[in-house]
């Protein structure tokens, strides 16, 4: 009987490995935790999309829980995401945009067409702030707490379900 059990070990190992690999099949390889979680929002000095003369830095994000959304006129998913961001703004969440690798004209036209849920938009034509944030494709969204620490990161499209099921609970958690 003991020998029989020993013979089953390879089968059990195989089943465990198969279960592990099967789970891997359904994971999204492009979504992974940001390296910046639990770290300060990177320092920056940028103008705003609205005002080329403005000089904004990381102190902009202190004092209130803020959702920072990296977008660009060239990014189709950002357009689909706008209704969800407007919904978040309507729920009282403070949003700051980062207009990433874009031109002022195109960025402004985008907001006119799809709505502007942002309190202010940082203008990042060279993608410097995006690089510091480890952005590898827009849209990406970061939740920053009142002390300016990054608490949550969302890669890619925010679905209407994400708003109620993930993002709003995260916002409340850090408020």
């Amino acid at each position: 009987m003991k020998r029989r059990l020993l013979l089953a070990i390879p089968l059990l190992l195989f089943i465990a490995l198969a279960a592990l690999l099967y789970r891997g099949l359904s994971l999204d390889p492009s979504s992974r935790d940001s390296a910046l979680l639990a770290r300060d929002f990177p320092a920056f000095s940028l103008s705003s999309l609205e005002d080329p003369e403005a000089s904004l830095d990381a102190s902009l994000l202190e004092g209130e829980v803020t959702l920072v959304n990296v977008w660009g006129e060239w990014c189709p998913t950002c357009k689909q995401e706008m209704p969800q961001l407007l919904d978040l703004a309507a729920r009282g969440v403070r949003l700051v945009g980062v207009d990433y690798k874009d031109s002022r004209e195109k960025g402004r036209a985008f907001l006119e067409e799809f709505g502007n849920p942002f309190e202010v938009n940082l203008f990042d034509p060279e993608g410097e702030l995006g690089f510091e944030l480890g952005v590898y494709g827009a849209p990406e969204t970061f939740l920053v707490d009142a002390d300016g620490v990054i608490r949550y990161h969302h890669t890619g499209y925010i679905t209407p379900e994400d708003v109620t099921e993930t993002i709003m609970p995260e916002v409340r958690k850090w408020q």
Partner: peptide
């Protein structure tokens, strides 16, 4: 690079 983009 790791500080920005992670161990990936």
């Amino acid at each position: 690079m790791v500080a920005r983009f992670g161990d990936y």
